[in-house]
């Protein structure tokens, strides 16, 4: 009788503990979590550790200085300390990708839930909308949206958010299609639960795992796309220290080749952020959704 101790039964049936155990086994997940947390803490601490005002910070006497003890990452064309700029660029990148993925997740999940649950004509229209959004290469679509709303950080968030929508529609819809036929949903319906209750209390919670994984991975692509728009000059305008805008500044003003540090460090920061989200997403997928791992 001792072999079936309650503790064993409890750990194997508690989903949170199972997820935690799975996640701990994933090396990439652990590295990703540490990196992501580290970057978030750094971003939050920036104003405390290194106060900076984008509008006034410039020092023409120290233009384009190579990395040294005084300026660890060198300075840019306005003589601003690159370390500070990259640090604040991290803040902006995290904020933009979070809001953009938030927009995509919210709208995409809602449309996916509606399409998958109600089927019929609504599903056809939403499917058509998804196909059209997917027919545009994402950069092109983002450029179009950003052009309409003007060059600003806000329009970047919006543009990148819109191109995330179809992914979430497809994902949610496919999950709803299989969930709505499951017994627990049928039971809820038999007990007289309304559509809203079934969707938000029964179906949505069961679809959360893949959505969380996708959202994490989308944070990576959103960061890349937002920086890409910045690089094309459609995002934040100088002197805002946005990472893509910094690269564009250096490239367009022709000192990217003579002062390579002005491109190396901002690009490295973008890569680090995306890498952190990708690693974390991989680890979460292993833990939350083991079957979908390719």
């Amino acid at each position: 009788m001792d072999t079936l101790s309650p503790a064993v039964i409890q750990t194997s049936s508690d989903p949170l503990q199972r997820i935690y155990r799975q996640f701990r086994r994933s090396t990439s997940g652990k590295i990703g979590l540490v990196l992501t947390l580290g970057l978030v803490v750094l971003a939050l601490l920036a104003p405390l550790l290194r106060p900076f005002d984008a509008a006034t910070a410039r020092n023409f006497a120290a233009r384009l200085k190579a990395p040294s003890l005084e300026f660890l990452m060198g300075t840019d064309g306005l003589g601003r300390d690159l370390l500070t700029l990259v640090w604040y660029g991290l803040r902006i990148s995290l904020l933009v990708s979070l809001i953009a993925v938030g927009i995509g997740l919210l709208i995409g999940t809602l449309l996916g839930l509606v399409a998958g649950y109600f089927r019929g004509r609504l599903d056809t229209v939403i499917g058509w909308f998804t196909d059209i959004l997917l027919a545009f290469p994402s950069v092109l679509l983002a450029i179009a949206v950003a052009t309409v709303f003007g060059s600003s950080l806000r329009s970047v968030m919006f543009a990148v958010g819109i191109i995330q929508i179809p992914t979430f529609i497809r994902l949610t819809r496919s999950m709803v299609l299989s969930l709505r036929e499951r017994e627990f949903v049928q039971t809820a319906r038999a007990f007289g639960a309304g559509s809203g209750r079934i969707i938000f209390r029964h179906i949505l919670p069961s679809s959360l795992a893949p959505l969380i994984v996708q959202a994490t991975l989308s944070l990576g692509t959103a960061t890349l796309e937002a920086a890409g728009l910045g690089f094309l000059g459609l995002g934040a305008q100088p002197p805002t220290p946005e990472l893509g805008t910094m690269l564009s500044d250096s490239f367009r003003n022709g000192y990217s080749m003579s002062s390579p540090w002005t491109i190396i460090f901002p690009g490295l920061m973008i890569t680090l952020i995306v890498l952190a989200f990708n690693l974390l997403g991989d680890g979460l997928r292993d833990a939350l959704d083991p079957r979908s791992n390719p």
Partner: peptide
């Protein structure tokens, strides 16, 4: 390959130009 998908293409392009051309 993980680093490869995490890099901005234009950044990699600029680095390649700097290293191999300049």
């Amino acid at each position: 390959s993980l680093v490869g998908v995490s890099m901005p293409v234009y950044w990699l392009g600029l680095l390649l130009i700097y290293l191999f051309a300049v």
